[in-house]
Design a protein around this nucleic acid. Sequence first.
RNA 1: GGCCCAUUGGUCAAGCGGUUAAGACGUAGCCCUCUCAAGGCUGAAUCAUGGGUUCGAUUCCCGUAUGGGUCACCA
Length: 555
Amino acid sequence: MEKYIELSNLMFPEINNTVEDLENKYPKRNIEGAVTRFAPSPTGFLHTGALFTSLVNKRIAEQTGGIFYLRIEDTDKKREVDGSVTLLTSEMKKFGILPNEGVMSDTEELGKYGPYTQSQREEIYKICAKHLVSLGLAYPCFCTSEMLNVTREMQEKNKQIPGYYGIYARCRNISVEEMIERVKSGENYIVRMKSSGSHLKKVSFNDLIRGKIEIAENDQDIVIIKSDNLPTYHFAHVVDDHFMRTTHVMRGEEWIPSVPIHLELFAKMGFELPKFAHFPSIMVQDGTSKRKLSKRKDKEAAVSFFLKGGYPVEAVIEYLLSVINSDYEPWRIKNQDKDMFEFTVRLEKMNSAGALFDMFKLNDISKEYIAKLSSKELLDKILIWAKEYNIEIFNLLNLDLEYSLKMLGIERDNVKKIRKDLVKYEDVLTSFVYFFEQKFEENLQNGYNFEYTDKINKDLVKQVLNKYLEVYNHNDDKELWFSGIKSVAESLGFCTDMKEYKLNPEKYIGNVSDIAGIVRISITNRKNTPDIYAIMQVLGESKVKDRINSCIRNI
RNA sequence: GGCCCAUUGGUCAAGCGGUUAAGACGUAGCCCUCUCAAGGCUGAAUCAUGGGUUCGAUUCCCGUAUGGGUCACCA
């Protein structure tokens, strides 16, 4: 026993504090609610799956009146990408899932359980590693990576379970005396946990989503401190989640296979076990099979994809909510006016199979969301978005804010008949090009979109437009406006009654909708638009007349 | 390959031993209509497979298949 203590002092001479000191420094939290966390590696942008994970963690904490904190897991210095923390936190902020403790930005940290960046917690891990060594539960391993590779290859060749365990765990059987000698002599080493498990025995734990999960015990002497003096994920997870007093460890399902390691580590450290929940992955269709959403292959894997395109962040969150608990949608339909966060997320209702990312569904939720906004709210949101992501749209809308507001207000007043053609903010440009003079003219470079037929030829179109100009009165209300269209139709031999036209099409040149269509194209150069009367009202009398006249001249 | 997790329409999924197997997205048709969108109505489409257990299995158990995950001094 004393030899182990000697060894631990030799390995960690600079460490004087004990686990007990840590227990005192980071006392149990005095709150009822769940303490949850999101613990990404700073390897780049915020992944859509990570957004999903942090959303659940945040909701569970908030619903129970707990704490949701952000911890940065930067123990792999090779993979670290500069600026990640700034990106990660700013993207979380945009989606409204900022933590209430931990890393808040690259320069700011909140809370008494820090530091919340793992590379700054070296001493804490060392205290814990030293503790294990002093108890004979961890030991220095002098094996080189070359030796490890040779062993692994041999094991694979012989169809044995690869890894550092049993007889292959060469350094676990070195006598303490020899360990002391070799450490003293300055030999390089890393620290491994001395496993006492057997893969022939099973351990089980309760997963909040999946229920009881039974897996073989861990029997590997896994590395806890690497040669760069930083801990491995497993060790850092156990130490941090204990001393940050996490109550619910909720992460991706890729962690399930390593839970036995964590279980053993918690036990060896004498720490109380947190609750576990493992989320299914968000999948994507790839040919005939599905696979995990991939950073490299899938544009929708990065949350910046939604930000850039101008998906309302609320819509993305609502979509994710509907993936988390499919009863979110019926709830939403019933509770139109409620905030989406009034919906209670239930882990046990979460499906444990991976769900395909459904762009159609997102689009639908997004349309629905935008449709519910007032034109003022919409304009404000688009402006905020455009200022950062699409300066052209920003400038166009700013040309005349009153005008932009009226434009967005078209067919937005009638709740039952509201338009849903905007999926994302970016779409204003394609949907409403013809409202912007310059854009409209650019579009005209390719000519007008008239489709001439035997009956409706260029001359007739001109005739229609000339006649229409005669009856056009900008102050007409919608009904009068339509009778104007009808009168043009009648005078040129077009039918004004749709049913009649359908019955006897041969009697007429065309019907009113052809007349309206001609006017529509002359003003917007589009075959399909929202209510043409409303468009004319927004454009204003002079612009309407200019466009019709210009059309007559140029076709 | 070992181990783990999963499997209800094209997609997300309700269901938790007896149901005409919900709903939403998508899709098809019709209606409405100045076009489109929206809206309304209607339709097509699902329990992976083989064994058990049971009076009765989508539901419980076992095998098979398929898909996913994981087996590092990465997280």
